[in-house]
């Protein structure tokens, strides 16, 4: 069994999640994945054992791959902006 990831590794993974979530063109998906990533990493703070942390880290790495592919697809197929979205793209979130 490999050793648990360091705090730096976890934080860097978290940044990758946020970076890719922000890249979604779809407003609802973007906001959801930002919120979900934030909450998932926050609740990860309560994990205690090395095994728990390692498992969560490995799972998150796989989920990051999904997020990378899907944020790319969201940019390839874009639709009109929603009535709550500024057209210039800068969004307060």
């Amino acid at each position: 069994m490999s050793t648990a990831p360091s705090t730096t590794q976890v934080l860097s993974l978290y940044r990758e999640f946020l970076r890719n979530a922000t890249k979604f063109n779809n407003y609802n998906f973007k906001n959801y994945f930002i919120r979900r990533s934030r909450d998932a990493f926050n609740s990860g703070k309560t994990l205690k054992t090395q095994e728990e942390i390692t498992n969560a880290y490995t799972k998150a790495q796989q989920e990051l791959e999904v997020l990378k592919r899907q944020s790319l697809i969201s940019r390839l197929y874009s639709f009109e902006k929603l009535v709550v979205e500024p057209l210039n793209g800068s969004h307060k979130k």
């Binding site: 979604f24 609802n28 998906f29 999904v66 997020l67 899907q70 944020s71 697809i73 969201s74 639709f79 009109e80 902006k81 929603l82 009535v83 709550v84 979205e85 500024p86 057209l87 210039n88």
Partner: peptide, 19 residues
């Protein structure tokens, strides 16, 4: 200054496909 696509609030009819 915003887009024109409506907000989707008809989740009982169908839901967006999760990425």
């Amino acid at each position: 200054l915003n887009g024109t696509r409506p907000i989707y609030l008809d989740m009982q009819a169908t839901t967006p496909t999760d990425p």
